[in-house]
């Protein structure tokens, strides 16, 4: 189709304008992170630093236990991504490729989960976490201690079962022809071998979509670590950032440096896997 020159120019103008609005705050944050302390007291208003201070990043790093925060976030994110992929793919495969009594009602029950906001279940979840028997100083009745609260369990386990992931996996596995299963069954394979030798190797796009979605949502999560952890040693990067802001008189150059530091894994993900990243966000219906 054709567009007039005026139409095209206006399009470029508008796109450039919005792109600038999107990106300028981040550019300002980047340059602010490189400014020296003295620039703030002088009240100068330049975009670029008058002198460059990349050492702000190591200063910001040393002002809080970032090593601990990053380790916590990395452990929780890796376990949540790995674990949820295994469970979601297996369940999605089962719902799509195996007939068994109760399949439809069980699946519909799972779909109900899609409608329930995390903010609604957080209070009972908190109580359940606190009452997990034999953990965190609890007796076998779940009394006396903190259960899973303030531990990795609280941040990992609820992330493992996603109604969403199972739904996506089922949709993905439904698109294959039945002949694929029959050939495998004739060879004498059971369900598990069918999954591991036939379907898992075909699951690349699904793994990318769900993996990216889970990575972003767990790494960026603020809500659950805020409510389920309280000791400094259990903080994730998002929580650490929030605390970092409060612990010192706000030094914006260091705050911006820390903000960019905790965003690096997500930014790398975004720029390296841009196509898969965008497909993941579109198909999972979740803002990053």
């Amino acid at each position: 189709m054709k567009h007039t020159l005026t139409e095209r120019s206006l399009a470029y103008l508008f796109l450039t304008l919005i792109a600038l609005v999107a990106i300028i705050p981040l550019v300002i944050a980047l340059f602010t992170s490189l400014k020296g302390d003295e620039e703030f007291s002088l009240g100068g208003m330049t975009l670029l630093p008058s002198s460059w201070h990349p050492e702000n990043y190591s200063r910001a790093w040393e002002m809080a236990d970032w090593g601990v925060f990053i380790r916590n976030s990395a452990i929780v994110t890796a376990a949540a991504v790995g674990g949820s992929l295994v469970l979601n793919l297996l369940a999605g495969f089962t719902f799509a490729r195996i007939r068994f009594p109760g399949r439809t009602p069980l699946f519909l029950l799972l779909l109900l989960g899609l409608m329930i906001p995390a903010q609604v279940t957080v209070i009972p979840q908190f109580i359940i976490m606190k009452s997990i028997p034999l953990f965190g100083g609890n007796d076998w009745l779940g009394q006396g201690g903190n259960g899973w609260l303030d531990s990795y369990w609280a941040l990992i386990v609820p992330e493992l079962a996603g109604a969403f992931g199972v739904f996506m996996a089922r949709q993905f596995y439904l698109q294959f022809p039945k002949a694929l299963d029959d050939a495998s069954y004739i060879d004498g394979a059971g369900y598990l071998r069918l999954f591991f030798s036939v379907y898992l190797p075909l699951s690349g796009p699904l793994l990318a979509t769900l993996g990216i979605f889970k990575f972003v949502s767990v790494w960026n999560d603020f809500f659950h670590p805020l409510l389920y952890t309280n000791s400094p040693g259990m903080r994730t990067v998002q929580l650490g950032l929030q605390v970092f802001r409060g612990e010192h008189q706000v030094q914006y150059n260091l705050l911006m440096a820390a903000s960019l530091l905790v965003s690096i894994p997500i930014l790398i993900m975004f720029f390296v896997f841009q196509k898969q990243f965008i497909r993941s966000m579109v198909s999972t219906g979740v803002k990053g």
Binding site: A19, A22, L26, I28, W219, N220, L241, L255, S263, F270
Partner: peptide, 29 residues
Amino acid sequence: AFRALIYLPGVLSSVAVAMTWLWLLDPLQ
């Protein structure tokens, strides 16, 4: 490029976004 730039703020965590705007909107500096 347009798509990536305009989408970029959406990939950041809400905390990183909040910190950025805390600075942008700072009343004094």
